[in-house]
Design a protein around this nucleic acid. Sequence first.
DNA 1: ACCTGAACACCGTTCAAGT
DNA 2: ACCTGAACACCGTTCAAGT
Lengths: 228, 228
Amino acid sequence: VPPAGERRPRRRPDPKQGYHHGNLKAALLEGAIALIATRGADGLTLREVAQRAGVSHAAPYRHFKDKTALLAAVAEEGFREMCREMAAAATVAGANPLDRFKAIGVAYVRFAVAHPSHFRIMFGPEIPDRSVFPSLATAAWAAFEMLGDAISDCQRTGAVREGDPLRVALPAWAIVHGLAALVIDGQAPAAGHDARTVESLAQEITTAIYQGLARPSGAAPRSRKGRA
Amino acid sequence: VPPAGERRPRRRPDPKQGYHHGNLKAALLEGAIALIATRGADGLTLREVAQRAGVSHAAPYRHFKDKTALLAAVAEEGFREMCREMAAAATVAGANPLDRFKAIGVAYVRFAVAHPSHFRIMFGPEIPDRSVFPSLATAAWAAFEMLGDAISDCQRTGAVREGDPLRVALPAWAIVHGLAALVIDGQAPAAGHDARTVESLAQEITTAIYQGLARPSGAAPRSRKGRA
DNA sequence: ACCTGAACACCGTTCAAGT
DNA sequence: ACCTGAACACCGTTCAAGT
């Protein structure tokens, strides 16, 4: 029995298909992502996902081995969307590799704050072993590679120090990931996850990892000057 | 009915006390931390904590309002232990503020990798609103303050650029937090959480946030030289 | 004051049975 | 091939009842 007046998009039985609709799998995935956004990662229930899709609570098992498999699909879709948004941000940023690198980092944080529960599932312990889901591992790796490639480009123009790009990219990944985690967990001071605050925090962070916290060499302890 | 041969420390009924032992609350907290270490954050069950303490599954409610309250106590103890370890690391590092700052950052990562499930509960969404538990909020803040104070000291000696210490400390916090999260979630390349690998990764990270990723100004693009 | 035992409303998962 | 309904073994939480 459906609970009450809940909007449920495109329910068209189409009796040519088996029972309810041809692509229950896609509907379940979509529903799970929507449910996570409103109820949080812990609030996600296989039974409610099934109910929202209009099927019995046992039906999902025909399409996903278990709850973890559904969560893996959710996580994979999250990484794909994150990559899309980072790529879009890089495009907007223009041709300067350093600008592109910073834009990607900011987009990383922006995605996490916009979809905190989704972000948690992408990285959290709900999926204990990512190697069981190769396509998820691939999608996750692609996100890291975007940062690595951006670093590579910066090294080519001489903006970033030399060294293995992936190794140099790790601190950059860590700092944007750390800021994202702290903000969505309510530790970093981003009141209400206000978009402008988050944006400027992310800008500060990417600048910090590029320039470092050290006093600019050659600058006197009391008078700081901008770089060239 | 206790399951089988499980070691259960110091069960001394002491009939002077109420029923089982005088400080069931402490026993529950201790048991919860132990259970998290072996079963993970998701595997923690109020009923099993009670069973291990030798009481009924309803008994914990006499000492903790609900499961979240127990988790908050677990998280608080985690922050205290982390602070202890960071303080110890700073002491070992000596008097140089920059060395102390790096040691604190490394200790932060080391704690997370040594107690991943505990670390997740300290920062995760299991405790939705930290402000409900003031002592937890205080303990968490103390950890951030240690980094902030270390940055302050570095600014006094001129090693770190000027500015609001807490604001300057945020990138440092983000980078160690991010590395910790990536490692325990199996994203960063620390095979098996090997202690030496983690240690050197943490060293690299703290160096990176101090020096920055920028090519050292004044160095030619092809020949890098050490700083003074 | 502190704990027990039964009860309730949930879960994830399985499996025979239906079409 | 795909879905249902009942069933099982769990949860967290509550509450009358015991000492």
